[in-house]
Nucleic acid binder design. Structure first.
Lengths: 158, 158
DNA sequence: GCAATATAGTTCCATATGGAACAATAAAGG
DNA sequence: CCTTTATTGTTCCATATGGAACTATATTGC
């Protein structure tokens, strides 16, 4: 019907001047975004809430400020997520006795269950996405991405 | 000062169950997002507008509907971007004579200049990000990401 | 100890963006 | 033809999210 029927974003992959960035953006747009949208729809959790859950699943007794620094998210975003997660009984928030500005955050059992469930789904989804790679290729991909990611302090910010 | 001072999102890289997705998200959050935010600040262009510009830099005479299909963005988002870009004289929009519902879109010289400029900046930024990889490693990374991206129709949607 | 400064967290506001309903037009079916 | 259905693009609305101002508390310098 349409004379450009064949064209897809895929076709730009070959021609772009930013091959890596374009592919990463592609996977973000077509894989991560739909997955997160489904999470939002199914669980009512939004992205910053997931971020906070992930941080607290790795570390106990964090302050909101810590999470801001770890994730480099603005403090209002983290604040909102924390308040919402407390309301959902996914985390606890208790005022610090020594510095009463601060509030100690911890994940609850319910919160961890939700977190683990989500991660499980993501993990299966990732496995599905990577099915066309061999185990070696997957390992190489992770290694290369790792190299770039760990170099963040050199390339970040200007 | 803070007893978790060392912890960063980086530390989760080792432990996560979704190693590829996590690294891709990491690069998206720490590289693409700041870059796009700077673009928004510097040029006044927003993301869907960039998307439309990219499509029209690759193909002439597209309809908004085509761009929706190519990018899988909702029609209202594309519609807004198109209207805005027309206002900025970056693209032209002329009603199709045979189907008056449709409007033929084309990039202008000014639009192409802006597009090329942006891509140039992105390209230099990507080069900087990938500096720690050898040429071979870069090639491998692109190849592997490509393999996954081109497999989109298998893993997409559930 | 007190004033000046820094920090934690919140609230206010502006905006980007997706979903759904809608208007205008075209295509299909009898 | 005329009705029914499909399609294009827009508008309306709800919400996610970042920037900046603000409050409360703590720290620093004198």
């Amino acid at each position: 019907m349409n004379y450009i029927e064949g064209m897809k974003l895929i076709d730009i992959l070959d021609a772009t001047d930013i091959p890596v960035a374009y592919r990463i953006s592609f996977l973000t747009n077509f894989w991560r975004e739909p997955l997160l949208r489904r999470m939002e729809r199914d669980t009512g959790l939004i992205r910053p809430e997931l971020t906070v859950l992930i941080c607290l699943s790795f570390r106990d007794n964090l302050y909101a400020r810590d999470i801001c620094e770890i994730t480099e998210q603005p403090s209002n975003t983290v604040s909102r997520a924390v308040t919402s997660l407390v309301g959902k009984a996914c985390i606890t928030r208790t005022r610090d006795t020594v510095d009463t500005r601060r509030q100690v955050l911890n994940i609850t059992e319910a919160g961890r269950a939700i977190h683990d469930d989500l991660m499980d789904g993501f993990s299966r989804s990732e496995a599905r996405m990577l099915q066309s790679l061999t185990a070696d290729e997957r390992e190489t991909l992770i290694l290369l991405l790792d190299k770039v990611a760990r170099d963040v302090n050199r390339w970040r910010g200007e």
